[in-house]
Design a protein around this nucleic acid. Structure first.
Lengths: 115, 115
DNA sequence: ATATAGTATATAGATGATCGATATATGCTA
DNA sequence: TAGCATATATCGATCATCTATATACTATAT
């Protein structure tokens, strides 16, 4: 698939970067937020999220710190880096291109070329 | 991912069913059509398509027949069954739900719930 | 005539994203 | 103090897709 072998399978990364765009969050919170903001269409699994967060941190897209904040419990917060913001922009662009291409096919195709 | 573990990863099936909605096609033609109708965003690989066609035929979504048609060459044409049309309708519905959920998250979320 | 490129179908093995299962530990509430 | 929600983490399995490879036929150029 030209654009990106995996997208949605791949949109997961975009979605969690997006969540961090406005303010820092900890893992469990991202799972809840994603469910809430998508009207429970998504239920991202912990087994998917945590390894992904570790990978993104290694790639320099995120940084993490522990904080007790307004909770009694220490949580691990993630923060989007400049590089991460760049990645988010790219992913969003890909997402737009990909969905518009699919929608074009669903509408019978823009280029009704030959056939 | 609630709706369907794989979608786009999974949209491929929807796209080829969609191609067959109007008239029968052979494999190679589907690859070309998909590229043309998506402005070359998609380049479905033969190694992905043929096994998929075989699976869909086994599931009763498609039937196939060989025909020389207006070519000098015998080609294997695929035809969408009633069951296949049902599957297409379902997949399109899923696609709409999924993309609107992603777009909701990208727009900051419909349910700006708590956070 | 013959090499090359495009058409057409097919399969096997590799890769990579996500999930389910499982583990651990803490905090809240009945 | 038992049970449930919160919170993070890892491992193995699954599944869709890709790359590579194979085969064979057709058309075109040399």
């Amino acid at each position: 698939m030209a654009i990106n072998k995996s997208l949605l399978t791949g949109s997961t990364t975009m979605l969690i970067l997006k969540l961090l765009e406005i303010h820092d969050m900890y893992g469990y919170q991202m799972i809840e937020q994603l469910a809430a903001r998508s009207n429970h269409t998504f239920s991202l699994k912990a087994g998917t999220l945590y390894p992904l967060l570790h990978t993104l941190e290694q790639q320099g897209m995120l940084t993490s710190y522990e904080d007790q904040a307004d909770s009694t419990r220490v949580r691990k917060y993630y923060s989007l880096t400049k590089k991460g913001r760049g990645m988010l922009a790219e992913k969003q662009d890909e997402w737009r291109k990909y969905t518009s291409a699919v929608n074009q096919v669903l509408q019978g195709g823009a280029n009704l070329a030959a056939l």
